[in-house]
Simulated assay, not measured.
Amino acid sequence: MQRKWFQYWFNSPYYHILYSQRNDEEAEFLIDNLSAYLKPSAHAKILDIACGRGRHAIYLNKKGYDVTGIDLSEQSIKYAQQFEQKHLRFFVHDMRKLLYINYFDLALNLFTSFGYFETEKDHVDALKSFRKAIKEDGTVVIDYFNTLKILRNLTHQEIKTVDGIEFQIKKFVSDGKIIKHINFEHKGKDYAFEERVKAFTLEDFERMFALSGLKLVETFGDYALNPFEENKSDRLILICKKT
């Protein structure tokens, strides 16, 4: 089966170079606020879906939770596994496929780690897996960008220099996706990668939740968990339960 863009890009060392300035404090701020809002029990079982190198999972574990991180990127999971211990584990796994059933108190999909697939069926299959993974009274949290704000403020072209590499980034919208072309040269070789993320709105999520057996119980618009306002909010944070 042909590998998809996200299998190439997220497995590349250049993905981690380009996004190396991602803010751990911001990630911890979100986790602190979600923990205060959701009040998981002291040793709650938490699934971090599309966990990358594990920054959210590691922090959740430090707070005392039993955490499982899954990601499709072999390289990211290999990196994360160095932090494994009794109540922290990482697996290479496709979010569309079931890993555990009725097992987790909380399933988190953070930092726009959704919207990568070609078809709505794939996205609904992923949501069904999220739903099946949690206990009857469990919670699913999805943290997505606010598509409407992104589309209004799209920077079509930018150059980012990180570790001496000049990343030339072009962004555009096509076929309901926000597409980012990333081109650069390193050690005499040219590279080209892309990111393709669906421009899902709140209404799109509500439609997919209905198809996957989830119900939306709360929305927030930023990591301080302020209310979602579609014209202003940076994020669309969705809190869901089983129907």
Rank of each mutant, 00 (worst) to 15 (best):
L202R: 07
K198H: 13
Y144E: 05
K189R: 12
F145I: 14
F184P: 00
K215T: 14
K187P: 06
R196D: 07
D163T: 07
D222F: 04
N183E: 11
F145H: 07
T155G: 00
E203Y: 12
K132D: 10
K135D: 09
G115W: 02
F220D: 03
V141K: 02
N153V: 05
I134S: 01
L148E: 15
K121C: 12
K189G: 11
Q168K: 15
H181K: 15
F145K: 07
R152P: 01
D143K: 02
L225M: 04
Q157E: 15
L148V: 14
G115R: 03
Y191T: 04
A126N: 07
I134W: 02
K198R: 15
E166R: 09
H186A: 10
E195G: 03
D143T: 09
K177S: 02
E136M: 09
K160C: 08
R196A: 11
D125H: 08
S129L: 02
T219A: 10
I182G: 00
L202I: 10
I134H: 01
V141R: 03
I178R: 00
A133Q: 14
S212F: 10
S129F: 01
L202W: 06
T139L: 08
V141M: 06
G138P: 05
T161P: 13
K132F: 04
T119G: 09
F193E: 03
E185F: 04
F220S: 01
G115S: 06
F193L: 05
T219C: 11
G138C: 07
L154P: 01
A224W: 03
V124H: 03
E195P: 02
D143G: 01
F167W: 13
T147C: 10
L225P: 04
F209H: 13
V124A: 08
F209D: 07
L127D: 11
R131N: 15
E203H: 12
E118S: 14
M208V: 12
E194A: 01
H156N: 07
H156D: 06
A210E: 15
G221F: 07
E195R: 04
T139M: 08
D125N: 14
N153K: 03
K135A: 03
F145T: 01
N153F: 07
G138Y: 07
M208Y: 15
T119Y: 09
N146H: 08
T201H: 00
E194H: 03
T161Q: 14
F114V: 12
A192W: 05
K128E: 10
L154E: 06
N183F: 11
Y116W: 09
N146E: 12
R196H: 11
H156I: 02
D122Y: 08
G164Q: 09
N226C: 10
S129K: 00
D122M: 10
K215H: 10
H186Q: 12
K121M: 15
A224S: 05
F205V: 11
K170R: 13
D122E: 14
T219E: 14
E194W: 00
Y144M: 06
D163Y: 08
A199C: 13
L202C: 03
I178N: 00
Q168I: 12
K170N: 11
E120S: 13
E206Y: 04
L148A: 12
L151G: 05
D143A: 08
N183A: 13
K121I: 14
F220Y: 08
A210S: 15
K177R: 11
E203S: 15
Y144G: 00
